[in-house]
């Protein structure tokens, strides 16, 4: 659906994007994550055709965003950072204006405006001037504007910034709903948001992609490998280390100091990426060990994010 190839963008001497490539398939909800100034907004501006890349290409549905600007923009809904809207128009006027330019027929427009306004929760503010709306409401009108033509692709730059917690939950649910049969790229500074809404994560750092994959994959790759914390009760004549070492997929076993429990704790590293928890459980049972604790040992996204972006 979206193919981005070796995008580079220079603003004068500043290199904002440096050879970014990725592909987004239909039905994916991709979260852009990265520190301030990483290049998330720049990347979105290029995909939507507002800016041109210094080099590299972006295609939507196989069409180049520069050569087929108008066709591509028809299929995309875009919410820019900070939702820049005309302050002198009312919500209704504004959504009708965007809807008209989106090619919605005049007789269908009022219903469509009402529908998106209800979807994002601004139906009670339709006659209010946008300039007098609170930040969160403006953000919602911005979202409504991006969805008014029911686009195949939504590109949302920090869609939940400025929203209250209730509204954040609603908007996330809405994005997940939309993402079932459409494609969404959103950027955020909120890590829980990524795990709550996105099925894929792209971490951008200094204009490059530092990590790309499902939260699980990223944790596996960047979160200290495929390791498990195993706790078993001490048993006579059985050395738990030997039981674990006897498994062919186990790479390394280390005993951990756990003065707070009677159980023995180990950190078991497995080869490959497959989840071996079920297997470990059975291995313990076979070996006569009583398993009392078993979980994956890996850094959470927050730690991974810091590790990647503080280098």
């Amino acid at each position: 659906m979206i193919e981005v190839e070796k995008l580079t963008k220079d603003y004068g001497p500043i290199r904002a994007l440096d050879g970014v490539s990725f592909e987004v398939r239909k039905g994916e909800i991709v979260g852009f994550l990265g520190p301030n100034g990483a290049g998330k907004t720049t990347c979105m501006k290029i995909i939507t055709g507002f800016l041109s890349a210094t080099s590299g290409t972006a295609r939507i549905g196989g069409q180049d965003v520069v050569e087929h600007g108008v066709e591509v923009r028809r299929r995309v809904g875009y919410l820019p950072e900070n939702a820049p809207l005309y302050p002198d128009m009312t919500t209704r006027e504004y959504l009708s204006f965007v809807g008209a330019l989106r090619g919605i027929p005049p007789d269908a427009l009022p219903d469509r405006v009402r529908h998106v306004a209800e979807t994002v929760g601004v139906a009670d503010r339709l006659e209010q001037e946008i300039g007098t709306l609170s930040k969160g409401y403006r953000q919602r009108v911005g979202l409504a504007q991006a969805m008014i033509h029911d686009p195949e692709i939504l590109i949302l730059d920090e869609p939940t910034s400025g929203l209250d917690p209730n509204q954040i939950v609603e908007i996330r649910a809405l994005i997940r709903e939309i993402g079932r049969d459409r494609t969404v790229i959103l950027s955020t500074h909120n890590l829980p948001e990524v795990t709550a809404t996105c099925n894929r994560l792209i971490i951008i750092h200094r204009g490059r992609i530092a990590a790309d994959g499902t939260p699980d994959q990223i944790q596996a790759v960047h979160g200290g490998g495929n390791a498990y914390l195993v706790e078993v009760l001490p048993a006579k004549d059985i050395r738990p280390e030997d039981v674990f070492r006897g498994l062919q997929y186990v790479e390394k076993v280390a005993a951990l100091d756990r003065p707070d429990t009677d159980a023995l704790a180990f950190r078991v590293e497995a080869r490959g990426e497959a989840d071996v928890r079920a297997d470990l459980f059975q291995a313990c049972a076979r070996g006569g060990l009583t398993l009392v604790g078993l979980r994956r040992d890996r850094a959470d996204l927050e730690t991974i994010f810091q590790r990647i972006t503080l280098q």
């Binding site: 501006k45 055709g49 875009y78 820049p84 302050p87 330019l101 504007q145």
Partner: peptide, 14 residues
């Protein structure tokens, strides 16, 4: 200045 150009120019208009 207000950034509204960004929405206007990413609508399917030339």
């Amino acid at each position: 200045k207000m950034g509204t150009l960004e929405i206007l120019l990413t609508l399917p208009v030339t």
